[in-house]
Nucleic acid binder design. Sequence first.
DNA 1: TTGATAGGCAAGTGTGCACTTGCCTATTGT
DNA 2: ACAATAGGCAAGTGCACACTTGCCTATCAA
Lengths: 100, 100
Amino acid sequence: MADDLFKALADPTRRTILDELAEKSGQTLFEICARLSMKHRLDISRQGVSQHLAVLEAAGLVETRREGRYKFHDLNAAPLRQITERWPTPDTPGPEEPTP
Amino acid sequence: MADDLFKALADPTRRTILDELAEKSGQTLFEICARLSMKHRLDISRQGVSQHLAVLEAAGLVETRREGRYKFHDLNAAPLRQITERWPTPDTPGPEEPTP
DNA sequence: TTGATAGGCAAGTGTGCACTTGCCTATTGT
DNA sequence: ACAATAGGCAAGTGCACACTTGCCTATCAA
């Protein structure tokens, strides 16, 4: 469960994908491929990116919706909260209520 | 840099070590070994644990202090904040001031 | 229908890394 | 001094995983 989350975050390419989805929501696979190649000089095959997206989706960090032949990808950063909840710091609130 | 952080979190045994240090601060290598074995049924060699601690220390998640022949390990969860700062959610504050 | 676009499935390869084993150094107690 | 304890270094092994290649399906435009 949390296993998938940390595994997904372990790869630098996947983290870059999260960055891209944070910047522009609802991108397709090809769009992500293009941006990785252009902006980040990452020459990775389309299938490589597809597999990364599958891992991110398994972790709950990416959600997808199909429309016709397009598949749009959206970032969901919510699962990340369980990290700071598991190991709280003096300043980070542990479980519940960030701003009452 | 952030690379080390995510790599450190990627391993389940390392996350368990963080849990243990969160529960009891200032443990020695042998103490951690014992607790992993007893509480978590993890039979891992002492050297294995030592290598894990090195990775955690490289990530800034564990800080150490030497006293005589003992080396005490302390958890430092602060680096984890850069995760939720990098991909903020509606409820998690992004950069700066958690509770002024 | 044909061709182009968007995506998926499956098998193969190479490398990073978790883990072990064996030996070595340093501090403490008797 | 010696033995016991706490830890470190270095080389070897095996497996998980990132990435590619090749082929297949589905939707859209001409």
